[in-house]
Design a binder for these strands. Structure first.
Lengths: 347, 347
DNA sequence: GACAAAATTTGGAACGTTCCAAATAATTGT
DNA sequence: ACAATTATTTGGAACGTTCCAAATTTTGTC
């Protein structure tokens, strides 16, 4: 009425109690009498009071805000990751600051700084390419819980949650080899990233186990996107000795590979086997349904959030490195599920 | 060192000035002498001071935070929208709270309330299905700038930014009719939404203009997703008198329709024409490249953010309804671009 | 009805910043 | 050298909450 904002003091006045009592009611304290609680709540509704968390944070220390920064929100893998985080964070009564860096390391620095100023009490980050361990130094020094997801930063003293890239790629190759393929390509991804190295490692390992010689020509690095997939098939099909199957860096690449195959009148799952990585939501409903290594981005987001909340609540910031198991989901694009209904193989 | 957090007072102490001076430096005021400014900045860096925006907001009133809530972050249309918002908001020195409602109206209420408590100074919302004008009443009463995007809420006294759904759908069928199609279906989308009604309206209008009779069987409503698209072709192909073309509710549906066609050994763009709506980023690189009505989600996000910032800065909250023009981007999936390289038609 | 114990309520004093009015220092004109 | 400016700096007093210690009220017991 008077100034504009309704404060706890206005409520106290109107309800005939002290501001301390109103505060107690706000926090759901059991100290306050049932009758006064009801009275206060009634007044709160009546005056349209809105709680000022900023003021509260000034006094307390625990802020109910977590930050999440992803490197490419446009990629549905990360969008789902963010949704997963949002779910658990929200039901824990927290709210999330989300920012997109678009792989820019400067942007990343800016948004992390900004989030800090806003008093986040924890941070989940899928780091932009080129992020270094030192970039998290000041965060950890300040005792801020940080969880790195998807891409690990060697040497960073923070918790991390990455999927088992080696085992996943390995399982994919093993499956393909089991179907009789001998010319198996590795398509997509930027070669200078840790994730690429891990997946490529699994690929080579499984190749060796299946007694297939590694051929450098068959690993074709491109952008980890749909367009990159199209490009990758293009390059691979120029080879004298063409591949008959591909394990792709991620699902986006795999979809691009399917597109590229069709543009060449080859039907994925029939004329050429393709396996993806990530198991994004569209993988199941695509035609042909994509055989892929399931890392369950949403579930990963949820786990990351739980890990972060655990750290926030416990107060201890001891780093924990979790590598999350993956499993190969066999659908149609590898040519294995043509006759039988899609079945699942646990790796 | 002593307590934990470094405050403006610690800086003042260490630099041998008053807290007021430090505050002035922080705000980049021109009142302060160059030498002291340098001194203070040095100390700030040295002590690793982090600005406490919460405390500042308590005193000021303008918070540098905007909220954005979308109904389905998993859909890349909305993800890109969010990225667009983030871009302009970030470069204006703001930070965004982003939340996903997953079409849940309860969740929407919760997150909006939470954002308010955190002191956002404006809100961009792509409302969940079933949102009513009354839901924004308390926001507008409090003088909070609100911009509704994508889906309009009739009767809400807030600004809105929606695309010209009628014109877009209309242009799509006009194009298809021009290519000789007479059995044009409308596929995907939930029938009880405003956006659906508008696009369907454009579809019927153009049909009438082309002297094609409207056939109820040809509008097949499904979920506005890839899976929905697959389902839609399935239903449409059961008809005695099958369609030869489809304008789809959105690009996700269109991709699903392509999938469904292929599952039936029909090649999109050759045996059947499909036109999407939205022009998501993958539309261009898909094979065949998707002919679609371009609404430029990222650009829309940017415009929404600009509109919101304008309102925040001007202090006036007069509602402004913008319907943003769309244009048909002709690529391959409609069968028109087979011989010539992709060209663009402005509607 | 008096006393102790339990239940409830309540004034400050923070929290870390900004803003205002006023104080102090540096510069200028005469 | 002195007043008049102009340029800088500076103590409080907010902002809206929580927390503590202490005050008040209620309840229970004999």
């Amino acid at each position: 009425m008077n100034k504009g904002r309704v404060t706890v003091i206005d409520i106290a006045h109107a309800a005939g109690v002290s501001k301390s009592t109103v505060s107690l009611v706000l926090q759901g304290s059991s100290l306050v009498n049932e009758a006064t609680r009801a009275k206060v709540n009634a007044v709160i509704r009546e005056l349209g009071y809105v709680y000022n968390r900023g003021a509260a944070n000034l006094r307390q220390a625990k802020s109910k805000i977590v930050g999440i920064v992803v490197n490419d929100l446009t990629n549905s893998f990360f969008a789902e990751l963010a949704v997963g985080v949002d779910m658990v964070v929200q039901s824990a009564g927290y709210v999330q600051f989300l920012s997109n860096t678009g792989e820019s390391i400067d942007r990343q620095r800016e948004v992390v700084a900004s989030m800090r100023e806003h008093g986040i009490s924890g941070l989940i980050v899928s780091p932009a390419r080129g992020t270094e361990a030192a970039d998290f130094k000041s965060l950890t020094n300040a005792g801020m819980p940080v969880v790195i997801v998807v891409r690990n930063i060697p040497g960073a003293k923070v918790s991390s949650l990455v999927s088992d890239n080696f085992a996943g790629a390995s399982a994919a190759v093993e499956h393909l080899a089991g179907l009789g393929h001998r010319r198996i390509a590795f398509m997509g991804g930027f070669a200078n990233t840790a994730v690429f190295a891990e997946r490529l490692g699994g690929y080579r390992d499984a190749l060796a186990k299946a007694a297939i010689a590694f051929d450098d020509d068959l690993v074709v690095a491109t952008a980890p996107s749909r367009a990159g997939g199209v490009e990758a098939v293009g390059r691979a099909m120029l080879l004298a000795h063409k591949p008959t199957a591909a394990v792709c860096f991620n699902d986006a690449v795999a979809f691009g590979v399917c597109d590229g195959l069709r543009a060449r009148r080859l039907e994925p799952g029939v004329d050429f086997a393709v396996v993806g990585f990530d198991d994004v939501i569209e993988a199941e409903s695509a035609v042909p349904a994509l055989t892929t290594v399931s890392v369950d981005p949403q579930g990963m987001g949820r786990r990351a959030a739980q890990l972060l909340l655990k750290q926030i609540n416990s107060g201890k910031v001891e780093a924990e490195a979790i590598v999350s198991a993956v499993r190969l989901v066999v659908r149609q694009s590898c040519g294995a599920g043509l006759d039988i209904t899609a079945r699942r193989v646990v790796s």
